[in-house]
């Protein structure tokens, strides 16, 4: 049984503990239910606790369908928790979006097909009603290796290039919080590894509070300061570990026994996570 049918005649009361002062992301006792047919609902998350300290890079690992993307959507303010509290910098997450201080890269690149790559990366400025900082846009395009492709349209680029443009767009306004929902999920293994290296390089330049959702163990170990493994649905935190491998974590790191040991532990954890559901 992976789904729980819960009778919920009325909505669960939302108890919101006093927000922590300071920044970072905090989820406490978060549950999320999706209503299905009449009076039944699907419980995607159940009493999840998760914290991301300011400037920390946390990877959320879990089997597919465990609700990792739901966690990210809650933190992005795209959905509301059924119970528990979600705070970003001590306030409701939608607040951060309204202040244009949130960067999100989704599974699909979600670039606007009618706009050039440059306009897509400049979009956050326009949405925020600020003058477009051309220097910043140029720098970002160079940073993600898309210099020279400014005037191309998304469909003229490869999948990897589109994802890089989407990441540049997420970084445009110097966000305080960066959310990445399997941004490289659709890429082949080689491109994916290269993108991981680039993301690590970009992140090391400006350590933004980052939450990465992924099912790729290597990716999590290469990028994160800390890894949180979730159980199968309904999602809970099963295991947390810090990654002590020093940065920068280049290709040589992937050959160390330390790296392999951690990957093996986490992979085993993911395997059994499916069963505990």
């Amino acid at each position: 049984m992976t789904s729980t049918a819960v009778r919920s005649p009325q909505r669960l009361p939302i108890d919101r503990p006093a927000p922590v002062t300071g920044s970072g992301i905090a989820l406490r006792g978060v549950s999320k239910e999706y209503p299905l047919k009449r009076k039944t609902s699907l419980r995607a998350l159940d009493g999840l606790d998760l914290e991301v300290a300011p400037g920390e890079f946390v990877a959320l690992l879990g089997p597919s369908g465990c609700g990792k993307s739901t966690v990210l959507r809650l933190v992005a303010g795209l959905e509301e928790a059924s119970a528990g509290a979600v705070d970003v910098e001590g306030r409701p997450p939608a607040q951060l979006a309204r202040e244009h201080r949130l960067g999100v890269a989704f599974q699909e690149h979600a670039l606007l097909p009618w706009a050039s790559i440059r306009s897509n990366v400049a979009l956050p400025f326009q949405v925020a009603g600020r003058p477009v900082d051309d220097r910043r846009v140029d720098d970002l395009l160079r940073l993600v290796g898309l210099g020279g492709f400014e005037n191309a349209r998304p469909k003229q680029l490869s999948g990897g290039m589109r994802q890089r443009a989407a990441i540049a767009r997420a970084l445009a306004l110097d966000p305080d919080v960066l959310l990445l929902d399997e941004p490289f999920g659709a890429l082949d293994a080689v491109t994916r590894r290269r993108m991981n290296a680039e993301l690590a390089r970009i992140w090391s330049e400006q350590q933004i509070t980052t939450l990465l959702v992924t099912h790729d163990v290597d990716e999590a170990v290469l990028l994160a300061d800390r890894i949180v493994v979730m159980t199968g649905r309904p999602g809970r935190v099963r295991y947390t570990c810090t990654v002590d491998i020093p940065r920068p974590r280049g290709a040589d790191v992937t050959r160390t026994p330390e790296f392999h040991g951690l990957v093996d532990t986490l992979t085993a954890m993911l395997d059994s996570a499916d069963e505990t559901a």
């Binding site: 992005a76 303010g77 795209l78 979006a97 309204r98 202040e99 244009h100 949130l102 960067g103 999100v104 989704f106 699909e108 979600a110 606007l112 009618w114 979009l123 956050p124 326009q126 949405v127 925020a128 009603g129 959310l179």
Partner: peptide, 29 residues
């Protein structure tokens, strides 16, 4: 306009009119 495009505008903190002008009108063309 696709769901993901709508989400992009939401997380960027788009006002309704901005969303209309920059997403919904072009998608409707």
């Amino acid at each position: 306009a696709s769901r993901t495009h709508q989400d992009v505008f939401t997380v960027l903190g788009a006002a309704r009119l901005t969303r209309l002008r920059r997403l919904q009108f072009p998608a409707a063309l």
